[in-house]
């Protein structure tokens, strides 16, 4: 099918885009990579009156590191993240996970900002940003604020952004030394959204005792789920198969799978357990030996 008519505004600066959004509110949509918005428009699931194209705004794209934080512009494309040497060095969790997201042609267009603003509960990056304790920068024509990942995702396809706000950048703290991460998912075909996925982060001390752990899930609730009790159970422990099994059991209680024709709730919960154990094994290995 074809999209319904709309007014097309090309924004050349953040200020222009924000002024247009302030004027049109819910009637206006930002166009980022278009890889979620355009299919929805082609099916006429959404019919925005106005599209504000962010693609020409070069200041919205880019990756920089300052004061132990990676700052990623909202219009940074998956492909740029996938190929970026700083991301690989400082947050390999992202580099490991990106090949799981869609297909090469989609990754050439899709952006981190569009992905997070879209807030698909089965999407990988919201869980990753949650696991990394990310902060999201929101700007409107008159204000600017920071929203913690834990507060940003409020439900399926729903975020804390107001109608006049743009997600402008994502800030991810670089992990301390002796940290290891892993992302694992199960999907029906390569590039599909996850039936269940987990982002695991562990930090060890010099005695190999776990000092910090985080476990965030995609596809297992109406938003990315952080399994706090499961992660807590690892802290202070010398990580072993028994510790992984206990965390996996607690994680299965924390997730809230919805079930579908492709996977029952029980199967999704089973996946949560298996993926948690495997991801913790890999993350711990990487914390000991790097990447």
């Amino acid at each position: 099918m074809k999209p319904a008519p709309f007014r097309y505004i090309v924004a050349h600066s953040i200020e222009e885009a924000l002024a247009a959004k302030a004027e049109h509110g819910e009637e206006g949509r930002f166009l980022a990579g278009g890889q979620s918005l355009v299919p929805a428009m082609n099916f006429r699931l959404v019919q925005p009156a106005v599209l504000i194209d962010l693609n020409p705004i070069s200041e919205l794209a880019g990756i920089e590191r300052a004061d132990g934080v990676l700052r990623i512009g909202a219009m940074t494309r998956y492909r740029a993240l996938e190929r970026d040497a700083i991301v690989w060095r400082d947050l390999p969790l992202i580099t490991h996970a990106l090949p799981e997201i869609a297909h090469p042609q989609i990754r050439n267009r899709g952006t981190i900002g569009g992905n997070l603003a879209n807030a698909d509960p089965a999407s990988e990056l919201p869980a990753i940003v949650r696991a990394l304790g990310g902060r999201l920068r929101a700007r409107s024509a008159i204000s600017e604020r920071t929203i913690k990942a834990a507060d940003f995702f409020v439900g399926a396809l729903t975020t804390a952004l107001a109608a006049d706000e743009m997600l402008s950048a994502i800030e991810l703290p670089v992990l301390p030394a002796r940290s290891g991460t892993a992302f694992l998912e199960m999907s029906r075909r390569r590039g599909d959204f996850a039936l269940a996925g987990v982002a695991a982060v562990v930090t060890l001390d010099a005695e190999e005792i776990c000092r910090n752990a985080r476990l965030a899930y995609c596809g297992l609730g109406d938003r990315p789920i952080h399994a706090t009790a499961a992660a807590q159970s690892l802290i202070g422990e010398r990580l072993s198969e028994a510790a992984f099994a206990e965390a996996a059991r607690l994680a299965q209680d924390a997730v809230d799978p919805q079930g579908s024709v492709h996977a029952s709730k029980g199967y999704q919960r089973h996946l949560a357990g298996v993926l948690t154990r495997r991801a913790l094994r890999t993350a711990t290995e990487r914390a000991r030996h790097g990447h």
Binding site: Q35, V38, P39, F43, R79, P104, Q105, I106, N108, R109
Partner: peptide, 27 residues
């Protein structure tokens, strides 16, 4: 398919493969 799934519409856009059904000509 016109929703990005089949790949039949793939073209090179500034030398990178993209779905031409998920972009507007104006872009």
């Amino acid at each position: 398919c016109e929703h990005g799934v089949c790949g039949a519409c793939t073209v090179l856009f500034d030398a990178e493969p993209v779905r031409s059904c998920l972009m507007f000509a104006a872009q």
